[in-house]
Amino acid sequence: MKLWLGSGLVAQDDAHLSPFDRGFTLGDGLFETLRVREGAVLRLDAHLARLAAGAGVLGLPLPTLDLSAALAATAVANDLTEGVLRLTLSRGTGPRGVLPPAEPNPTLVITAAPLPAPAPPARLVIAQGTRRNDLSPLAQVKSLNYLDNILARQEAARRGADDGVLLNTREGVAETSIANLFAVIGGDLVTPPLAEGVLPGIMRAAVLTEGAGERPLAVEDLSRAEEIFLTSALGIRSVAALEGREVVDRAIAERLRARIPGA
């Protein structure tokens, strides 16, 4: 496999990162997961816009090179026509301490991977051990620090589930450890608004253009939902159960998968 490191492509075995890179030592950086379909990156402009917005929040300078061209070159170098690219951008190396260097030299890495096999409908639980901080500006950023998400996913695994639903500081529904969440309640397709501590997902935005609405959701709302599904850059995944309650309707998710490219 070849990957993009810095300003060009290198073989995987020749790729090396500094142990003083702040992405490694502090989780100081951003990433994007991008779906490749028929050789093209889907919704590329939206991904790059979210990356730029996150960089603005962190005060992280973007590379001066053409990111679109770097992504395309990585896909071509790995003969990737159907698969996944991951773009990782850290602040680069720095001295000890939390304060970033005055003139950072960011580290850019782009890797390629095959498209995962379609996952079966998910079984969810409500995460009890951690919360999504809706008061933090980082809720809007796809940062390298995923520890709350990891804790929620570990908890879900211990409880025999595929994923955990993260609540926010006010006990409202935010998202799962790896996806945005939609529910059909009383016939209405809804998802929590960004103010609930929700990451502005790229597939989430695509579903909103198909007529979904936004409103705060409580656990009680999900407990009576006719249908629940999850969205990420890699597609739409139906939910089979929440806290042991079977969720049998999947009609809207199936309709959206037929309408939205890469869903």
Rank of each mutant, 00 (worst) to 15 (best):
D21K: 01
R153D: 15
A73V: 07
G92V: 10
R245I: 06
A240W: 10
P104E: 00
L48E: 14
L230G: 09
P19Y: 02
A258T: 12
A139L: 02
E254Q: 14
L234F: 13
S7T: 12
A233Y: 02
Y146I: 11
G83N: 02
E214D: 08
L65S: 07
A179W: 00
R131T: 11
L151I: 11
A241G: 10
D249G: 04
E210Q: 15
I150H: 11
L58W: 03
E171K: 02
L256T: 02
R245C: 05
R22N: 07
L99F: 06
L256Y: 05
E210F: 01
V173E: 01
T130G: 04
R91I: 04
V165I: 15
T231G: 02
G235H: 05
S177L: 03
I150Q: 11
T25E: 08
G6M: 10
G244R: 03
E171H: 13
R257D: 12
D13K: 09
P120L: 04
G172V: 01
A225L: 05
G201H: 03
A117D: 14
L62I: 06
K2L: 14
A183I: 06
L108G: 02
N145Q: 10
P120A: 13
E38G: 11
I185M: 05
G244V: 09
S177G: 14
S18C: 06
L58K: 04
S143G: 12
L256S: 08
L89G: 06
A11K: 04
T81V: 09
L80G: 07
L51P: 13
L151K: 09
L34P: 05
A206H: 07
R35T: 02
L222N: 08
L3V: 12
F24D: 06
S7W: 05
T93G: 01
G164R: 03
N180M: 08
Q128C: 07
A53E: 14
L62G: 07
R257M: 13
R22E: 10
D45R: 15
V207N: 06
S68D: 13
I185L: 05
V41S: 14
E103V: 09
Q154D: 12
L138K: 03
K142A: 13
P216R: 15
F182V: 09
N180C: 10
A195I: 04
D28R: 01
A52I: 00
T169Y: 05
G160D: 14
A40F: 00
A75W: 00
A183K: 03
V198M: 08
N105H: 05
R35L: 14
A113Y: 05
T176C: 12
P121L: 02
R250L: 09
L17A: 09
E254V: 07
A72F: 00
P120G: 11
R96T: 07
T191G: 04
V98N: 04
A70C: 10
P106R: 01
P216D: 10
P121Q: 00
R86S: 03
K2C: 03
T111P: 02
P192F: 07
N105D: 13
L51K: 12
P121A: 09
G235S: 10
G54A: 08
R215Y: 08
G6L: 11
D14R: 15
G8K: 08
T107L: 13
S7C: 10
